[in-house]
Structures are given as C-alpha cells and as structure tokens.
Amino acid sequence: MKKLDIPMLLLACLVVLLFILVALAIALRSVWAIILCIILAFAVFGYGISKKKKRKG
C-alpha cells in the first residue's frame, strides 16, 4: 500500500473548498467573490499539477 502524500492531499482539499466557495459566492450574487475564488482555485490547481510533474521527473 502506498503512503499518503499529505501536502498534495491538502492542496486537493483546498481546491475543492475554493470551488465550494464559488458556489456560495454565486448564491450570494457576489461577482468579485466569484471571480476571486475561481482564479484562486485554478491557481492552486495549476500549482499542484506543476508540483506533481516536477516530482515524477
């Protein structure tokens, strides 16, 4: 069984949380919060993908 990669798991949880916040911002009709959360979610997602690529070689 493989060991859990805690930092990557936390990054994934952060991305999920940010997309949940996007849904909340949509419900509150806050355009600035929607834009901010989407940008942050994609930035964290991209950081996680780039970190994973660097780790594999």
Results as ranks from 00 to 15, higher is better:
Lys53Asp: 03
Leu14Phe: 05
Leu4Thr: 10
Gly46Ala: 10
Ile6Pro: 01
Leu4Met: 14
Leu17Pro: 00
Val16Met: 07
Pro7Gly: 10
Lys3Tyr: 14
Met8Gly: 12
Lys3Val: 12
Ile26Glu: 07
Lys2Leu: 11
Leu21Phe: 08
Val16Cys: 08
Asp5Leu: 08
Leu4Ile: 14
Ile39Cys: 13
Lys2Asn: 15
Leu4Val: 10
Val22Lys: 00
Leu4Asn: 10
Asp5Met: 13
Ser50Ile: 07
Leu40Tyr: 01
Pro7Trp: 11
Gly48Lys: 02
Ala25Trp: 01
Phe42Ala: 13
Leu36Ser: 04
Leu14Pro: 00
Asp5Tyr: 15
Ile49Ser: 06
Leu24Arg: 06
Val31Cys: 03
Trp32Met: 05
Met8Lys: 08
Arg55Gly: 02
Cys37Gly: 00
Lys52Glu: 13
Cys37Gln: 01
Ala43Asp: 15
Ala27Met: 09
Gly57Phe: 04
Ala25His: 03
Lys2Gln: 12
Val15Leu: 05
Ile35Asp: 02
Lys56Cys: 04
Val44Pro: 00
Gly48Glu: 04
Ala23Ile: 09
Lys2Pro: 09
Leu11Pro: 00
Phe45Gly: 02
Arg29Asp: 02
Ala41Ser: 15
Gly48Gln: 03
Arg29Tyr: 04
Asp5Gly: 08
Cys37Trp: 00
Lys53Asn: 08
Cys13Pro: 01
Ile26Arg: 15
Leu14Ala: 13
Lys51Ala: 11
Ile39Leu: 09
Lys52Val: 12
Ile38Asn: 01
Val22Phe: 02
Leu21Val: 05
Leu14Lys: 08
Cys13Asn: 05
Lys51Trp: 11
Leu36Tyr: 02
Lys54Trp: 03
Ile26Asn: 09
Val31Asn: 02
Leu18Thr: 01
Val31Pro: 00
Ile6Tyr: 11
Cys37Phe: 07
Val16Leu: 11
Ile26Gly: 04
Ser50Val: 08
Leu21Tyr: 03
Ile34Thr: 13
Pro7Gln: 12
Cys13Ile: 12
Leu9Ile: 12
Arg29Trp: 03
Tyr47Thr: 14
Val16Ala: 08
Ala25Val: 04
Val31Lys: 07
Lys56Tyr: 13
Lys53Val: 11
Gly46Val: 06
Ile20Thr: 09
Leu10His: 09
Leu17Arg: 07
Phe19Lys: 02
Lys52Ala: 11
Ile39Ser: 15
Leu18Phe: 04
Val16Pro: 00
Gly48Asp: 06
Ile39Gly: 09
Gly48Met: 10
Ile38His: 01
